[in-house]
Write a protein that binds this DNA or RNA. Structure first.
Lengths: 209, 209
DNA sequence: TGTACATCAGTGAACGCGCGTTCACTGATGTAC
DNA sequence: TGTACATCAGTGAACGCGCGTTCACTGATGTAC
């Protein structure tokens, strides 16, 4: 790996093909959708023979997993960036939830790849698994802090996190595939309604039972 | 349609092929999953030539839509059956939400077909659209009644329904594809945890804002 | 400093797959007269 | 009551597609000596 990225076009070896394929796959996914994302198409776009990717990934699923992992890393960054300078626990929780929604809306196909059934056995891809866990833990932290601030006990923080995650995820899927469901409500001001809904959730989270 | 279902095997015409295909497609979906559900396979299972289905459905999507519509009709029945003899508005809301979850867990592939992207432009299939709306309206009614019981105003009932639907749907997807996400929490007693989570939601629903 | 050789990262042809759909057809049914 | 004919619901062969993957290969790189 001494000359990574040195030669650009003329050399036989690419030097950085793995990253290039992931990058190209990502942009293909965002522009053309998941259906159009095939090994061959990615190879074509990268200007490389159609079997070259197999030297870097365990079949098609391997490439998909790598793309999804990159997606989770970006989601993590997006979430943490949104949290910057926010101090109030309640605000932080709301922020991290809304950020998730924004991310999903901005990258629907990626979002679908990250969570959908296209990649089976996600746990078997360490890179993907780690990135997903890291992203999830941002939410987890915010929920725990919020619970602590409101009732002093972070006892059922796990369930509460799952509840928050349910809200985020459910709404994200709904907003991402609008033809799915209640069309009336969501015509306009999606983020406003989302905030309203999240507020109800957050309120419910803080109850003592 | 005078002799529907009269002759069984020997006759050239099937007599009830459309229904038979939907039925067969449904069972194929449940046993083998969405990937295995092709026009040809359904035709094969029904004992009919592989092009016969095209006389009854607008291509593959048409068949899928018919199956999904049947799914929504069953979901509707399941929900209303669960509500029978329940009187308290809060209990009724909880019941209808849990019933949704149970249905999804019992028929994961069907659930995925009903809500996933396999059928594009769902609104263009009247049968499907109507069945989906009817099923959704059960939830809508329960939410409205609950709001009325708790605060006397069913003003933001639409948003509240969407919130409840978000909780149902989000959790259903999570429980349906378990490898997705937080594995720790959901090892056991899924319905118990689900109820806990829904309780938080329902509690949040009733807040005055 | 030079050489032999293992290893890695590419190539391109080809296989085999199941699919949705088109096509020209034929058997059965129902209706007009 | 009988006949002609349009229409409907089947058949089966075939087309064309893009795909993931296998295979034998070759060019380039790095390392041991």
């Amino acid at each position: 790996m001494s000359r990574v990225k040195a030669a650009e076009k003329t050399s036989y070896h690419h030097g950085n093909l793995r990253d290039a394929l992931v990058e190209e796959g990502m942009s293909l996914l965002e522009t053309e959708g998941l259906k159009a994302l095939s090994l061959r198409e990615v190879a074509r776009h990268t200007g490389v023979s159609q079997t070259a990717p197999l030297h870097h990934f365990a079949g098609k699923t391997g490439l998909l997993a790598a793309i999804a992992a990159l997606g989770f890393r970006r989601l993590f960054e997006y979430r943490t960036a949104a949290l910057k300078n926010k101090r109030d626990p309640r605000v932080r929780l709301m922020t991290v939830m809304l950020a998730y929604l924004e991310f999903a809306k901005a990258h629907p196909s990626l979002f679908y790849l990250m969570h959908g059934p296209e990649i089976p056995e996600k746990t078997t891809f360490p890179e993907l698994d780690e990135a997903a866990t890291r992203s999830y833990s941002v939410l987890e932290t915010c929920v725990a802090e919020y619970l602590q601030a409101t009732e002093g006990s972070a006892e059922c923080s796990r369930e509460a996190t799952l509840a928050a995650w349910t809200a985020c995820y459910g709404l994200a899927v709904i907003l991402t595939s609008p033809q799915n469901t209640p069309r009336m409500v969501l015509r306009r001001d999606q983020m406003g309604i989302a905030e309203k809904i999240f507020e109800m959730f957050i309120h419910g989270l803080a109850q003592k039972d």
